[in-house]
């Protein structure tokens, strides 16, 4: 059964060294949980960005929590490049597994279907094949002969995201952000923070059920109001552009990042 726990208890289910799948900024990023993870000192993570990340990855990287980074890009969007990501690449602080967006989706799909790999169009000719020896080029075993890329299944230990609401049974409303469901299908465990828990049953009508991730796939939920801040949460609140710009400016230096992080963590505590 899906448990409802406190935020700190939720993140305590992520162990150092585990692989952690997180969604792109617009889909619902668990920023409050990210702060709690940094506070708890959960490190050595293999971060899988589905399929890219921004502020969340940059904070975790800056805090020294990431040992392996698997992503198709790290970007702060209109605010510009992600400063701690850039610095860490230069310093060689983590193992880098560069990808391309649909290959990450394909890897998760393979896990969703319980198969070891997934073929995927394109990619041939890209140097990504040089730096990702785990991606293979094979001759298509069926149909017209020709080369095709296959990527291994991605089975994250934990998937973590933020959503507007859960019901009492632990069903989560994810709207049309189906990649959240894909992450949950593929991951061994799924942890979700929500703005609120509602009394109505989200599976009661076809209208609401279509946009729901059933509790079968959800291990634990914690309530975190404004839990995606300073990122946006769809249909709930926009991104805090000023705060993201402030981060981008401060995180250019290591000292600036430390100062930002300390304020960010204490501000989070006040909200909680």
């Amino acid at each position: 059964m899906t448990e409802v726990v406190a935020l700190e208890a939720l993140v305590s289910r992520i162990a150092p060294g585990q692989s952690l799948a997180v969604p792109v900024d617009r889909s619902g990023v668990a920023m409050a949980a990210t702060a709690a993870m940094i506070e708890a000192g959960i490190d050595n993570l293999h971060l899988v960005c589905v399929p890219i990340s921004g502020l969340q990855a940059d904070l975790l990287i800056g805090a020294g929590a990431v040992a392996t980074l698997e992503t198709s890009a790290i970007s702060l969007g209109e605010a510009g490049g992600a400063p701690r990501f850039g610095a860490a690449v230069k310093a060689g602080s983590f193992r880098l597994r560069d990808a391309t967006c649909p290959a990450i989706h394909a890897g998760l799909l393979a896990a969703q279907h319980g198969v070891p790999f997934m073929p995927i169009a394109g990619i041939i000719g890209s140097d990504l094949l040089e730096v990702r020896p785990d991606w293979k080029v094979i001759d298509s075993p069926v149909g017209n002969s020709g080369k095709v890329v296959v990527v291994p299944a991605i089975k994250p230990d934990v998937a973590l995201f933020h959503a507007p609401e859960a019901d009492r049974d632990g069903n989560i409303r994810i709207g049309r952000f189906r990649e959240l469901a894909t992450m949950a299908y593929a991951a061994k465990r799924t942890l979700v923070t929500v703005e609120r828990i509602v009394d109505r049953n989200l599976l009661a009508t076809e209208d609401s059920a279509a946009g729901v991730l059933p509790s079968l796939y959800v291990d634990a939920i914690a309530v975190a109001e404004r839990g995606a801040w300073p990122l946006a949460l769809w249909d709930e609140y926009p991104a805090d552009e000023t705060e993201i710009a402030r981060y981008t400016a401060m995180a250019r230096s290591d000292d600036g990042f430390r100062a930002y992080l300390s304020t960010f963590l204490s501000r989070r505590k006040q909200v909680a």
Binding site: P51, I52, T71, S72, A73, I74, S75, G81, A82, F85, G86, V89, K90, A91, G92, L96, D98, A99, T100, C101, P102, A103, I120, A121, G122, I123, I124, S126, D127, L128, V131
Partner: peptide, 21 residues
């Protein structure tokens, strides 16, 4: 030289795939 590139940009996004299709 990859991976410790002198300047690092965000990453390949969907380019390796979409350029083919």
């Amino acid at each position: 030289d990859y991976p410790r590139t002198d300047v690092r940009w965000p990453g390949s996004f969907g380019s390796a795939y979409l350029y083919h299709l």
